[in-house]
């Protein structure tokens, strides 16, 4: 039988939950015995996606964030979803150093970090409806 596993999280878009979310995902992933570096890359990518949902998606109003993590043998798929304001221009948003909130000392490196720390990053978004980030990584 193929070795698969799934977990889901739902929590409020409060900044205290950023630490909770990345630790919860990391602890679920740890059943695959990833290296310290792989685990840390995944924690960072999750932190980026969740922070974006809080800061940009909900702009510090309270909404819900949904995370699904799927394990399929050594392949991990992480989905982070918000029902916030959405992204107008995804291509531009993914450019390194682009930020819509420079006044908050954001550096515009979130998507670049997710992209380089994970194997694959997909962004789906629709204005007024929300954003879904899907990240994939294979651990050895």
């Amino acid at each position: 039988m193929k070795d698969t596993n799934v977990m889901k999280l739902e929590f409020l878009s409060k900044s205290t939950n950023e630490g909770f979310a990345r630790v919860a995902v990391a602890s679920f992933i740890s059943q695959l015995d990833p290296t310290v570096e792989e685990l840390s890359d995944i924690k960072t990518a999750v932190s980026e996606a969740v922070t974006n949902a809080i800061v940009h998606g909900y702009e510090n109003t309270i909404g819900k964030i949904y995370i699904t993590v799927k394990i399929d043998e050594r392949n991990i798929t992480i989905e982070v979803k918000d029902k916030g304001k959405g992204i107008e221009n995804i291509e531009k948003a993914r450019e390194p150093l682009y930020t819509s909130k420079p006044q908050l000392e954001r550096s515009g490196m979130g998507f670049t970090i997710m992209e380089s720390f994970m194997d694959k990053l997909t962004v789906r978004s629709s204005l007024g409806k929300g954003t879904t980030i899907v990240m994939k990584k294979r651990v050895n």
Partner: peptide
């Protein structure tokens, strides 16, 4: 032990 892009903004600022 952990820093994400928020830390980049913090150091840069």
């Amino acid at each position: 032990n952990f820093m994400d892009s928020s830390g980049i903004g913090m150091v840069m600022g």
